[in-house]
Design a protein around this nucleic acid. Structure first.
Ligand code: FES
Ligand code: FES
Lengths: 139, 139
DNA sequence: GAAAAATTGACAATTTCAGTCAAGTATTGT
DNA sequence: ACAATACTTGACTGAAATTGTCAATTTTTC
């Protein structure tokens, strides 16, 4: 039941990006340095975040990354889902994968896994990137 | 963010046990046969469930396992925690492990992971073994 | 045109998962 | 008594996921 480093790093990197992207793109090297995460690893995470349209990559010299949306409209759940895939506690509760368990229709536990994953999603979606940034600056 | 088979198997096995233990202990072989789970694997799961005082092992011929408590007082969360360890999305949110992250006191994401794990625990603890059994029989 | 930086894919070390196997202990039916 | 049954426990293994690293490529700017 652990979140992988992908999810944790991605959220931290996004907070860092939100706090420093006010003027121009932020490079991986800067974020990696501040957050103590490998720059090469961040590349993969940001690739996924970009596919999810949460950030935008700017190439070339003095390039880097920018948020694609206002931090107040980026929910933490979106970040986690982007790098970790759909939130589901079992394969058979992933949307579109209902047929993995042969007896899914009779399974008494399935509804519970579904409900639990929903609780996780709701919790993570109840917080925005702006919320975390505010918390980070007011310390 | 997946639950391992330990958690899923343990819950299924406990439901099976609750449904069949009315008269005498149930052996691993019976449960394994009905649920399609390896009997040897169940041994390990039940060992942990026993340490958590959720079931009781009865040795010798015609032995097996019995529930240690009334199904109405066994919460699914207890079963999952017994086989998967404490519910935490990160190592630094495991009770007693707060020092894993050097900057835990300043970390803005930690509170969110804590809150999320709590949501999972509450959801799983809101359902009892008796609830699942009722659902299984009324189909 | 050279340097900086993102893009992308291949690859490797480590850890976790899922399950097997076996040796040992306790109990019971006959 | 004793053989059969069944739990107990630890060691071990193959497969998969995790967590990165590295290099080649493309794009842009100074
Ligand atoms: S766990 Fe997949 S249907 Fe029951
Ligand atoms: S993730 Fe552990 S303290 Fe921030």
């Amino acid at each position: 039941m652990r979140l992988s480093t992908k999810g944790r790093y991605a959220v931290r990197a996004m907070v860092d990006l939100a706090l420093h992207a006010h003027e121009g793109p932020v490079s991986r090297a800067e974020i990696a340095g501040r957050q103590g995460i490998s720059a090469d690893y961040i590349a993969h995470l940001f690739h996924r975040l970009q596919r999810a349209k949460l950030i935008r990559g700017v190439r070339g010299r003095s390039g880097g990354y920018l948020l694609a949306r206002d931090p107040a409209h980026i929910r933490i759940g979106e970040i986690v889902r982007a790098v970790e895939g759909p939130m589901a506690l079992t394969d058979c509760t992933v949307p579109g994968q209902e047929t993995v368990c042969p007896r899914a229709s009779r399974c008494v536990t399935r509804a519970l896994w579904l409900k639990t994953a929903q609780a996780v999603a709701e919790t993570l979606d109840s917080v925005t990137l702006a919320d975390l940034c505010r918390q980070a600056t007011e310390s």
